[in-house]
Each structure stands twice: as C-alpha cells, then as structure tokens.
C-alpha cells in the first residue's frame, strides 16, 4: 500500500498524526462512493444476473418466468432470420461508421489544433451539429432532407444527378444513417483535440530541425503520441455503434425499407417491449454482450502492437 505515503512537504510530526487520521477514516470512502455503489448493485449488477437467468426462460411480464433451458439461444443460433438480418445490418453500420467517424474527427481536430485568430469561432461552428445530438429533432431534419423530394436531391439535380429516395431505398437507407452519425463527430473530435494539445511542442520543433516533413511528423509523432486517445475512441466507438437506436427508430421506423436499417437495438427493443418476449430479448442482450466483450478484448490485445504509452510514468495509475 504505497499510497499511504502522503505527498510532499508535511513535517515529520504532522505526518505521523496525519497518517493515523487517514487510517481512522478508512471506511469513510464508502460514504462518498455509496451513491454509485448502491446504483451499481441495484441497477447494474442485479439486472445483469437477472437478465442472464431470464435468458433461459420464457417470460412475458404477465406470468412467472418459465424455465426453457437453452431454447432461446438455440432459436437465435438455429437460424432466426431476423437475428441474422439485424446483426448483419449492425455490423455493416459499425464497419462503415466507426472508421469514417474516427478519420473525420481526427482530421478536423488537427485542423482546429492551431493557434489562429478566431479559432474558438470555428470550433463552435464545427461542434454545433454534435451539440444538437442524436435527438429526435435531428432525425426529423434528416428525414426531410434525404427524402425523395427533399433538399439533397434538389441540390444533386443542379449537377445533373438524379437522386433516389435516400431513406426509402434499401440500398442507401443505412448509408444515410452512417452519414448522420459522421456529421455528429463532435465529442470524438473534442477528445482528439484534448489529446493533441498534450503532445509536447518540442517534439515537433526538434523534428522540424531534423528536416522531417509534415507527413513524417504525422506518422512519427502525432500518431504514436495520440494512439492512446485513438484507442479510447475506437473502443467506445465500436461499443456505442453496436447500440445505435434513435436514428434508426425515428428516421426509418420499423426497420426501414426491406429491414435495411433494422439494427440490433431496435430488434431487441421490439422483442422485449412490443412482443413482450422478455426471455428471448434477454438472450439477445447476452449475445450482444458476448460480441462486444470479444471485440473489446481483441481490441485490447491488438493495442499492444500499436498503442504507445509514454514510459516516463506521467499519469501512470
């Protein structure tokens, strides 16, 4: 327990008195973290266990859960076509939207990480679309703009391109949602920006002195120094995209044209709260958890090869 040593300059007598007092309120910490702890036990840990149990039952809320063994899982993996469909839609969404958003927000963050006059104005303007968030309001706007007779097609018409009904066409509906997700890159971008600001300027200066071009500086300084932040955004981006709900639910109700935007979260929502198949929905949730857990674990394993942590101990936990 090395953290018992108290930082700094306290004189020896004060220090021992202080050390004693620290030991005395050892448990006081629990008073402070109790809100989180109670919430964790009540609204996270217990529900996790409960949903694991329910995933082996038939349960409609009205009667008691009936044990059904692995029947729910057997049905999911035994070729429930809706499961396959929603999973493949979700995977497609993740594969397109995560890299696109990361790349875009990194580029924007680098653009905004300069000392220019009026930078706070540009930052606000660029952040603005994310501020209004993934809300229903934006979904309404999107639905109108990308409609068959909407604004986007009229602009395309100027260039002689005949647009389709972006949202009613099964080939493009999901792409529209990916685009919306990318437009709201703000929070990812802000985190990149924070990371960029922590890269010591001296590194760039000495690299420039050594004659490194901007591209080399990007590959050899920015990218490695930023890799922990990139990793953070990647992990949370994948987890978040697997749970995408509002945009699909509001812009393309009932899973969109030919279920082309029927993402996993919407499928689970309908199973649980429209068909009241709580047991089946719980099994779906556990399958999702397993997928996300495996992907996250792979991410962490892979991170050894490309994420660079400064070894000087700064901020080590």
């Amino acid at each position: 327990m090395t953290h018992r040593t108290i930082a700094g300059s306290a004189a020896p007598p004060a220090r021992s008195r202080f050390a004693r007092s620290v030991r005395r309120y050892d448990w006081t910490g629990y008073v402070f973290i109790s809100p989180w702890l109670v919430g964790f036990l009540l609204l996270t840990l217990w529900p996790i266990g409960q949903s694991f149990y329910l995933s082996f039952t038939d349960y409609s809320l009205l009667s008691q859960p009936v044990w059904s063994g692995g029947a729910n899982y057997a049905k999911i993996f035994g070729g429930d076509p809706t499961f396959k469909k929603s999973l493949s839609v979700t995977v497609a969404f993740v594969l397109y939207s995560v890299p696109l958003k990361l790349l875009f927000s990194l580029l924007v963050a680098m653009l905004l990480n300069r000392n220019l006059r009026g930078m706070s104005f540009y930052r606000t303007a660029v952040y603005f679309p994310s501020l209004i968030g993934g809300s229903v309001a934006v979904a309404a706007l999107w639905r109108n703009m990308f409609g068959k007779d909407g604004y986007v097609n009229h602009v395309l018409a100027w260039f002689g391109i005949e647009g389709t009904g972006w949202i009613s066409n099964p080939d493009t509906a999901l792409g529209t949602l990916v685009l919306l997700n990318t437009w709201q890159f703000g929070s990812t971008m802000v985190i990149f920006l924070a990371g960029l600001k922590q890269i010591p300027q001296e590194l760039y200066e000495s690299a420039s002195v050594d004659g490194a071009r901007p591209i080399r500086r990007f590959y050899h300084i920015t990218l490695p120094m930023l890799s922990p932040v990139l990793f953070f955004n990647l992990v949370l981006g994948i987890i978040g995209s697997f749970q995408m709900f509002t945009a699909s639910f509001v812009i393309t109700p009932r899973g969109g044209p030919m279920q082309s935007t029927y993402v996993y979260a919407v499928f689970l929502y309908e199973k649980a709260f429209k068909h009241f198949q709580m047991g089946y929905a719980s099994a779906l949730a556990w399958v999702l958890l397993a997928i996300v857990a495996v992907l996250t674990a792979l991410n962490f394993l892979g991170s050894r090869y490309w994420v660079f942590y400064e070894s000087d101990g700064r901020g080590a936990k």
Binding site: P47, I48, L54, A272, M278, S282
Partner: peptide, 20 residues
C-alpha cells in the same frame, strides 16, 4: 469495476430494470 461499466452495453440491463 466502475470503468468496466463504461463499456457495458445498456441493452443487457434494460429488460430487468424495466421489470424492476
């Protein structure tokens, strides 16, 4: 544990929470 919950998909807890 708290940091781990950051990565927990909300769907896993939503059904039992609703039941509760």
């Amino acid at each position: 544990i708290m940091l781990l919950t950051l990565m927990l998909p909300g769907q896993v807890t939503i059904v039992p929470q609703y039941i509760l």
